[in-house]
Structures are given as structure tokens and as C-alpha cells.
């Protein structure tokens, strides 16, 4: 989902050619860049944008799944879903902390999310309409996120790479859990199987869009690749995802909603891979620009939580200030 973090990124830097070359030499030697070290402004700006969008995606991503916590069909599923949504909040927390090492506050990032200045993954602007959507999100959305994130464990920026190692472990657990929900539904009643197929039909194309626009349209990829903020192109990752996921759909006995999907022996340098139908990029851009099915509701929900919580945050600060003002002896 995080390749979308580079949409509209401005990688331009005003430093001298000498400074940029020395920095590039460190990157090329696979050195990790750490918070207080010198870095090009464009590098810092691009990372803040990408990590911030990743953090916001985790936070907004709590909403569509949270929509089913109170209606989960068994206690075991309810507990697993609660734990998953909690993990996403935890990921948001480490990612905000990683972005803060680059000199932006969590408060500022939150304001940027609420004002629409900062984006989050387009996928969370789709609604969760049935229990099977919880399975499909784990399987497809977390599956696509892992494809994007595994390479980021080797990102040149130390705090982001380290956060990503921990996040990837949890995401792969979520992905297996989601697939297991789909397996259970696919092996269940006709109604359950229909529910699973319907979820796959609705989540398949938006999941492919998570990798971001086609390489032919990603202007900033070259610089981000050179800086090792991004390690594979959008289309490469999308292809890997399709190749990994289609056999999983087959195992479920579900059909991928693409009548142009076909195995192509010649693909991937002769290793074979799937050709797939065209992605509706007009839908993607419409969702990115704010006109997806749930964009307004997602931001409204975050805004409401922020506004409704203002008195709580103010009270906590006021109490802390009163305590700090008390003489030590009173403790």
C-alpha cells in the first residue's frame, strides 16, 4: 500500500553536487542513514511523506476492520480481530515515532491527515460489507502490504527499516489468519462460499491498485530507487502479488474476477507468470483524489475521534501540569 506513499513526492534537493554524491556513496555502500546524520532535504521530505502515509494507512485501516469487531461470528474470531486492529494501532505508533525522528511531530501529521494534505492507502476507502471482507482484507490487503514492505526492511533509512522488520512479522501472521478465514468460508455452506466469492470480487482490483500507478506513470521512482527508499517498481511488485495470489484463490476454489487472467510461460524471464487484464486507473485516481466510496466517512470518523477526544487530551495535560507544579515534598 505504501508505494502510493510516493505519489506526488518531490524529491528535489538543493544541496551541492558534492554533498549529494557523498550521500549517494553511503547509500550505494548499503550504509544505514540514522536520524541525526546529514541527508538531502529531498530524502528527508520523501521519507516523511512515505512513512507518514504508511502510519496514516494503519490508523485509517483500523476503521473498516473495526466495523466487524462487534459482529464477529465467534468469540475466537472476535478476539483475533480485536488483536489485529490493536496491532495496526501499534504499527501506526511505531511509524509515527519513526517519522518523528525526521523532525515532524505526530500532531502535525495528524492535522495533515485530517485536512486531506496527507494521504493514506486507497484501499481503506472501500467498505467492509460482510464477514468475508475481514478474511479478504487479511488475505489480499495484508498480502499486498507484505509484498511492498518486505523490501522496505532493507530501506536505507535505519528507523524505518527496523520498524518494518517488526511490522512485517505481524502482517504475515495477519495474512495467514485472513486466508484461514477464507478457507473456512470456502469449505462452508453455499451462503458462506458466495460471501467469500463476493468479497474476492470486490477486493481483487482495489488490492492490485495498492501497488500504485503503473511504472510508466511514476515520475519519482528513479530517485527513490537510487536512495533505496523504494527497492522494486510498482509493476514488479504487482506482478509478484498476482503470481503468488492466483494459486491461493485456486486452492480456495474461488475465481479471480478477471477473464483475461492467463498463465504466460515467457513471463518473469522464462520462469512464467500471469498476464492479467487492465486495471481501471480512473477508479484509482478518483479514490486517491477523495471520491472513493468511503473517503469522506473515513476522514469524518478520524475527525470525530479527534474532536471528541480533545477534552480528554486537554485534561491529561492540565493534570500533568498541576502535578509538575506541586512541590516535591507533596509527592
Amino acid at each position: 500500500m505504501y508505494a502510493q506513499g510516493l505519489i506526488g513526492a518531490d524529491t528535489a534537493s538543493g544541496e551541492t553536487a558534492e554533498f549529494l554524491a557523498a550521500f549517494q556513496a553511503r547509500i550505494d555502500a548499503n550504509e544505514k542513514i540514522e536520524p541525526r546524520e546529514a541527508m538531502p532535504e529531498g530524502y528527508r521530505r520523501t521519507l516523511i511523506r512515505q512513512i507518514g502515509q504508511h502510519a496514516h494507512s494503519e490508523i485509517v485501516g483500523m476503521l473498516p476492520e473495526g466495523n466487524w469487531i462487534t459482529r464477529a461470528p465467534s468469540l475466537r474470531r472476535k478476539a483475533a480481530l480485536l488483536a489485529k486492529v490493536q496491532d495496526e494501532g501499534g504499527h501506526g505508533l511505531y511509524l509515527y515515532a519513526a517519522a518523528e525522528t525526521l523532525g515532524i511531530s505526530r500532531e502535525q501529521m495528524t492535522q495533515d491527515l485530517l485536512s486531506g494534505k496527507a494521504k493514506y492507502s486507497s484501499i481503506f476507502n472501500y467498505p467492509t460489507l460482510s464477514w468475508a471482507d475481514i478474511g479478504a482484507i487479511g488475505w489480499l490487503v495484508d498480502g499486498a502490504a507484505i509484498m511492498n514492505q518486505i523490501p522496505l526492511c532493507r530501506c536505507s533509512y535505519g528507523p524505518y527499516a527496523r520498524a518494518m522488520i517488526r511490522i512485517c512479522k505481524e502482517e504475515s501472521f495477519h495474512q495467514r489468519q485472513g486466508y484461514e478465514i477464507m478457507l473456512t468460508l470456502a469449505a462452508g455452506s453455499a451462503e458462506q462460499k458466495d460471501m467469500a466469492q463476493d468479497a474476492l470480487n470486490r477486493w481483487w482490483w482495489p488490492s492490485l491498485m495498492m501497488f500504485g500507478p503503473p511504472d510508466s506513470d511514476s515520475q519519482n521512482s528513479d530517485q527513490s530507487m537510487a536512495w533505496k527508499i523504494k527497492r522494486f517498481s510498482n509493476d514488479e511488485l504487482r506482478q509478484k502479488f498476482v503470481d503468488a495470489t492466483v494459486p491461493q484463490a485456486d486452492r480456495l476454489g474461488l475465481s479471480v474476477p478477471d477473464d483475461q487472467l492467463v498463465w504466460n510461460e515467457a513471463k518473469n524471464g522464462g520462469a512464467g507468470g500471469y498476464d492479467f487484464g487492465p486495471i481501471d486507473w480512473s477508479e484509482f485516481w478518483s479514490v486517491v483524489k477523495g471520491d472513493g466510496p468511503m473517503n469522506r466517512q473515513r476522514i469524518a470518523a478520524r475527525q470525530k475521534a479527534w474532536d471528541d477526544g480533545a477534552w480528554v487530551r486537554e485534561a491529561a495535560l492540565a493534570h500533568a501540569a498541576k502535578k509538575a507544579a506541586q512541590p516535591q515534598a507533596a509527592e
Partner: peptide
């Protein structure tokens, strides 16, 4: 659990989800 994703701050989203999880457990 109704609070999950709607708490006054992120730390409380985590804490309340954790409490709900313990209670369900």
C-alpha cells in the same frame, strides 16, 4: 471493543482494545 479505532488518542485505542481482548479472553 466499540472504541477500537475511535479513542481520544492512539495510546487509548491500544489500551482499550487490549482491555476488551482480556475481557473476551
Amino acid at each position: 471493543s466499540e472504541w477500537s479505532g475511535h479513542a481520544p488518542q492512539l495510546e487509548e485505542d491500544l489500551a482499550l482494545s487490549n482491555i476488551a481482548l482480556d475481557l473476551i479472553g
